[in-house]
Design a protein around this nucleic acid. Sequence first.
DNA 1: ACCTGAACACCGTTCAAGT
DNA 2: ACCTGAACACCGTTCAAGT
Lengths: 231, 231
Amino acid sequence: VARKQAEAPVKERLSRERIVDSAIALADAEGLEAVTIRRLAQDQGVTPMALYWHFKDKDRLLEGISERLLSLVVRPAVADRSEQPWYEELRDLLAALLAVLRTHPATADLVQQRVLLSEPGLEIAEHALRLLREAGFGPEQAAQLSGHALHSIVTLVTNEPGLMVGEEEGLREERIRLKRVTFQALPPQRFPFMLASADAFTECGNEPAYFDLGLDLFIAGVRAVAPTAAG
Amino acid sequence: VARKQAEAPVKERLSRERIVDSAIALADAEGLEAVTIRRLAQDQGVTPMALYWHFKDKDRLLEGISERLLSLVVRPAVADRSEQPWYEELRDLLAALLAVLRTHPATADLVQQRVLLSEPGLEIAEHALRLLREAGFGPEQAAQLSGHALHSIVTLVTNEPGLMVGEEEGLREERIRLKRVTFQALPPQRFPFMLASADAFTECGNEPAYFDLGLDLFIAGVRAVAPTAAG
DNA sequence: ACCTGAACACCGTTCAAGT
DNA sequence: ACCTGAACACCGTTCAAGT
């Protein structure tokens, strides 16, 4: 049997799994725009066209990434309704998704656009729909709200202030400083509230509070527009 | 003075305004991915590098598009608080933004990422912040919620079911039909709720209701998490 | 001030061919 | 079954040069 090489470009066999693995790692390290067919091939020590044997085209590869990440989501168990209302289970479901996406922020947008194209994504959607129907929403509203739920989570991850995936070491502080300076240069009489919030736009002071407010906002909204008094 | 040509590639002078005009028109017609430096140059009957005189790089051009669209937003007048609560004015503000973005759905994501980089964008943000502060939120929460507000609007526009920018004439029906078939092929015992919502995922039955629910959801959420009893 | 020409370093993808 | 080589039609961008 072939011995595993010690150094960088490990040359086992290529496979869908290996490609998706390295694609996610690359996105985490350098951002989604670094994930190109040619770059992945290079990292695997292989010709770009080799990837086309395993994926029809780049879009299918991105689908593969999305599927993998969604499969990592640990959905909450179906709760006993006498112990936990629908909106708490919904919050747990969204929190589970949030936990995965926070680990791979660069891929969040990717996942969002492809949830309904993979089994694990469909299962999450089905779960959300079930809870929303329980809340009294019709099929159309439940569909729309499940989409908004997903999008709220993605927004939280991708728009966290001060976060920027695939950034050079040490550049972060400089970028934040520069952004802060830009904001503070705004005319105070015209933009007093922007100035007051300048810090909050440039850096996330309190991560747990940030994510909690995001989840609360969505859950509170759904409960408020829910038809049943149960909400 | 030079007479205006009747036929397609109108050859007046190039300018930032003309470039932005044609970029928006192109995005509307064929989607944002069609908006390339080279394509824009070709449509203007000019060399690609000609554009670099007017814009430092493509990112600045996209900023120009964003600024233009945000300048089209007609913000509501500052209301008398005894007649209109803060959340109604906020809803009007978001509805004004929504109206513009619905006209150019392909550019919605673009605008979202660049609001704080243009004067008109900053004015909209300032307006939203003022209302949120009135509601009792602190600078950090107001900043975060203004971001969510914007993102909710963009989501509504870009994720409207059945909508897809820059699509060939007549391909829409075929694509929707195919999507519907895919959904209906799901195993009914595992995805009963997905099946029940299949139509809602593929096509928007009721546009006004769709947009109203989206706005209601956000406004209700903000009111619910607002610190003051006034909400 | 405004635009061109030629070149560079990238993309995704096809197609025929190798083993 | 799995991968390579060569080619095509695209990108954004730089740099020197023209008028």
